[in-house]
Design a binder for these strands. Structure first.
Lengths: 350, 350
DNA sequence: ATACTCTTGTGAAACGATTCAAAAACGGTC
DNA sequence: GACCGTTTTTGAATCGTTTCACAAGAGTAT
């Protein structure tokens, strides 16, 4: 009934506790014969090491915490997968916290990870977390920002150039002759959302006669996109934009649902649509979605690798890796019947 | 430089360590004036409680571990969200592990959670984990199965009747006159996959002349579905099924991509398609997807609630909650032009 | 003044692993 | 069998909290 400890194992195997610990942590130090005996005792008693005690002694845990904005967004799910794969290879574990775009919850997970003295924290933050992160470092916990630049904050980061991505998307729309562009976003305290808007602004500024309207959704999920889309459909046709760029694919999917269900807006004829992230589902939507692709999995992998390097050598200067996004053109902006040259990417993909 | 402990706080505030601990854990026992002084000391020193030490003393942690099959599948993401929301309300934290349909990784997360002495474990398992779970209980860690019945194993569970779901899906296809049904699955050691197949079999058995072909994909992701779809397109048209039921929506999306890209299979005319889970994206696909809806978020919430109840009263008998799935008909089986009565659900949803 | 209650604060023991200096066991040489 | 170097094992000290029996102080009633 009483929990089995290392002492019980020691007694059962007829050795001292130190030896059991050695079997667990430095098997090279212990003779083969003793090792076998101890391991058998462990199995027979069903002993499981108490990580709290271990952690207390050695000063830190062996896990790495990851806090993402929204695990329901496949983009972040991919990041998580990338991080897990990289951690797995190095024999580490990743535990995941989902802030759900909620600053309180983000804070709660950071508190939790801090109390747990995790080895490192990977985070795609909502607002500004630099002071939280520098406090973490005082406890010896390194942090790496994911999908957000840490330039100038002294924290390492792995990100994608969102301004460039926004520019890419809207430039494309403008080149197609669209002039009344709308940007659909939400939670503008999230940097990605505003950076993409900045990129959009920049592109619009280059074309005389082009205008940019900013539309605010109530969140960044599919339903929020659908709601925003329905609002838009309500407007008299003349007041609708002729192109829309959304802060992410999930929103775009929602918008598409609204447009298609009501049947009053044709994509791309009436409104051309560009999403962001190029999630797996983007190419399977009613009208396949033009999107800005980010190397999501690579983002997670790279973040974890930087983390491991920093743990290996804590004196390492912070690094800020920035990837470049890529525009993937599909039917939501260029109707296949328009014969504007077939989508090269789609072909390459199959 | 040295880490700040409760002793430092005590010295700085001019009280004993016991008092600091009381401020932290039983504020009622300490006078208002002292409380303020201690809290100020905590802030000034930037003290953060070491959870390992706390855990060591009290015997268990305060977090709940959740292991899901595939966090990239929005269905599981919703489960996680439901569990998190419920935990949040009760002041608990959920940490997430993603087994990625990999038994080793599942085992690694269970080990980790066991060593961490988490308060409870929520798991959607791959194979049979009953002995792992009973060992957990010996450490005082309760477990609740999610999306998998624990009937007969003595473990609580929250699940959806997958046999009924499979039956529902294939019955629908048969009622539409389809006879050559294919079931697309993968990882048949996962119970959900085989239960849905069993339901399909049952429906097929009721209709003379109907046949069921089982197709095995290499995994349960979008790409795996696409690969399987492409295989199917290779076949001479006569050897293709006239209806397909997939183990989940993610696979169905992949299949749809393959069919649409190659342009050689029309949905639903040539092949009618039914998915499973009714994820948010299902209604936004090229051809909106008929699917079997499960109350995903509710699944997560309920699982966590059962967990909390069991923690509150460990003598409670295990409970096995089973929800009933619901068929959502969309264009991937009933073409809107066929005027087979419009989809009532779609309307209700907007 | 004494006894009693009630509130607040104290400090040493305990949790279960790891670590490390020192002891023991072993094997080979002379 | 004494000596030396190497390998293996030992066990007490330690990590930072929580807990709990106890003490000190402040009222109150007698």
């Amino acid at each position: 009934m009483a929990p089995i400890g290392i002492k019980d194992v020691a007694r059962h195997a007829g050795v001292s506790v130190g030896t059991v610990s050695n079997v667990l942590n430095r098997p090279a130090l212990v003779s083969a014969e003793t090792g076998v005996r101890v391991r058998r005792a462990i199995d027979e008693l069903g002993f499981v090491r108490n990580d709290a005690a271990r952690q207390l002694r050695v000063g830190h845990s062996t896990t790495i915490g990851l806090v993402v904005l929204d695990i329901g967004n496949p983009f972040f799910a991919e990041i998580a997968r990338g991080a897990e794969d990289a951690a797995d290879l190095a024999g580490h574990s990743v535990i995941l916290g989902n802030s759900d775009e909620n600053a309180n919850r983000e804070g709660a997970y950071l508190d939790l990870f801090e109390e747990q003295r995790v080895r490192g924290v990977l985070i795609s933050p909502i607002g500004d977390v630099t002071d939280r992160l520098s406090r973490l470092r005082r406890h010896g916990t390194r942090a790496v920002l994911v999908d957000r630049s840490g330039e100038g904050t002294g924290v390492s980061s792995v990100s994608v150039d969102d301004v460039a991505g926004g520019y890419l998307a809207v430039k494309h729309l403008l080149e197609l002759g669209r002039r009344r562009i709308a940007y659909l976003g939400a939670q503008f305290e999230i940097r990605q959302v505003t950076d993409r808007l900045d990129g959009a602004r920049r592109a619009v500024a280059e074309v005389p006669g082009a205008s940019l309207e900013v539309v605010t959704a109530s969140g960044l999920s599919v339903v929020d996109g659908r709601d925003a889309g329905e609002q838009l459909v309500q407007r008299p046709p003349r007041q609708r934009p002729d192109a829309m760029f959304t802060a992410n694919d999930v929103l775009a999917v929602g918008v598409l649902q609204a447009f298609v269900m009501t049947g009053r807006v044709r994509v791309p004829d009436d409104i051309a649509l560009v999403g962001y992230d190029d999630i797996d589902f983007a190419s399977a939507t009613v009208v396949p979605l033009t999107s800005v692709r980010q190397p999501s999995r690579l983002l997670g992998e790279t973040a974890l690798q930087i983390m491991l390097e920093e743990l290996g050598d804590p004196t390492l200067a912070p690094r800020n890796v920035v990837f470049t996004p890529e525009l993937i053109v599909r039917s939501s902006t260029v109707s296949p019947t328009m014969s504007h040259s077939p989508d090269p990417h789609e072909g390459a993909r199959s």
